[in-house]
Design a protein around this nucleic acid. Structure first.
Lengths: 106, 106
DNA sequence: CAACAGGTTCTACTTGCATCGTACCTCCTG
DNA sequence: CAGGAGGTACGATGCAAGTAGAACCTGTTG
């Protein structure tokens, strides 16, 4: 079972769920953006400036967290998210590479 | 532009579209099933016995064809579909392997 | 020719999901 | 303590997409 923040362990990740998370253009763009940042980069949700409301942004990040794509990092002050790069590469080899290979869009 | 049957060329295939096509459980199951068959296997739509009506089945196969996953083969007699394995492996390396690695479900 | 099998198309229904506004929470800073 | 920044939770809404039924098409087989 996922931890208290809804993060699945790698063996709990479901490919269909991950694909669904990536099928949305905004979520795809967030992951693609992360892949252009240094590894282990921590970013606030606000950093991505998605063209939707705060609550919608929060919803999208929740979907990505629950799929296993992102991990929430609580810094006391503000929370950040981190791409779970190593775990995803181990669980779904090649998947992030495909996302990163896709040209940025919109 | 796609051909008269709606098949995109590999360079026209869009990863988001492909991921969306694979995010549906029935469509995912069809591709996973194809990966358990011999390469170049031709199958009728009816072969998969999806638990939905004929028109819904036709809809799902259309989505997969238009995403580039399947190619329609007209045998005069009955039509069949073929997984575009080589082209997909070239365009999205590793993607089909991920689908094939996922345990069958339901 | 009639009947059937396999697919497609069209229309309609219904479910899912992205979206938003509001209210609320937590931590920091005047 | 009051206010703001960053996020979350909940309820409502509107559109996209999965679904089914009916009519139709094509090729095969009695």
């Amino acid at each position: 079972m996922p931890d208290e923040d809804g993060h699945p362990r790698p063996d709990e990740m479901d490919l269909r769920t991950v694909l669904h998370a990536l099928a949305d253009p905004l979520r795809f763009a967030v992951i693609a953006q992360f892949l252009r940042e240094p590894e282990e980069a921590e970013r606030t949700c606000a950093y991505f400036q998605l063209p939707v409301s705060k609550s919608t942004t929060s919803h999208h990040f929740k979907v990505m967290r629950e799929a296993g794509l992102l991990r929430m990092v609580d810094n006391g002050n503000s929370r950040s998210v981190v791409l779970r790069r190593r775990e995803l590469d181990a669980r779904f080899p090649g998947l992030l590479a495909l996302v990163g290979a896709e040209p940025a869009h919109d």
